[in-house]
């Protein structure tokens, strides 16, 4: 994982930021700051998946300059907070691996549908590869979105009958309406 370029908030250099605070009001502020920082970090670094067990290798959770790191259990509780607003979801039962949605699935969905409508691709079929890796989408926000996340976003559209996923083994595509 390469270095993520980010303007760290002041809290990142504040040692107690890495200790869960006992005072409920202070803790609420702390968790809020962590939530924004996680989303900002992942957005800047285009990270879609975080493995909590790897957290000590991620500068986000481990500030080696001040020798402070965020405990795994605390990370999980903060990610669970992000889950409440649709900004994260665990992908395994043990809650080790998390998808991070710096755009919520709803936001991704409307972004993709906006693109389809603007290009007049309604009623056409696109492969998932085209939609996420194709030359035409290079300037789109959802360029390089991983398939797992893409499918979830498209499922949002499917519910609204705006598309239909075609997920067979050899052909992974989507038809937009």
């Amino acid at each position: 994982m390469g270095e993520v370029e980010i303007d760290w908030p002041w809290q990142y250099n504040f040692p107690p930021f890495f200790t869960l605070q006992p005072n409920p009001e202070t803790r609420a502020k702390q968790v809020q700051a962590w939530k924004s920082l996680i989303l900002e970090y992942c957005r800047k670094g285009r990270l879609y998946l975080v493995d909590v067990r790897e957290s000590s290798h991620i500068p986000l959770f481990n500030n080696s300059n001040i020798n402070r790191k965020l405990e795994e259990s605390v990370i999980i509780s903060i990610l669970s907070e992000l889950q409440k607003t649709g900004h994260a979801a665990p992908v395994d039962k043990a809650k080790h691996r998390w998808e991070i949605y710096w755009h919520t699935l709803d936001e991704w969905a409307s972004m993709i549908y906006g693109y389809i409508s603007s290009r007049g691709f309604n009623n056409s079929v696109l492969t998932l590869y085209e939609l996420s890796q194709g030359e035409d989408v290079q300037t789109e926000e959802f360029y390089t979105i991983p398939q797992e996340v893409l499918i979830k976003a498209l499922q949002v559209l499917e519910k609204d009958r705006k598309c239909e996923l075609i997920l067979s083994d050899e052909d992974q595509g989507v038809k937009f309406f």
Partner: peptide, 13 residues
Amino acid sequence: LVKQGLAWIDTQD
């Protein structure tokens, strides 16, 4: 001071 929200604790020293 912690209760007042004016101090933060750091347990990683």
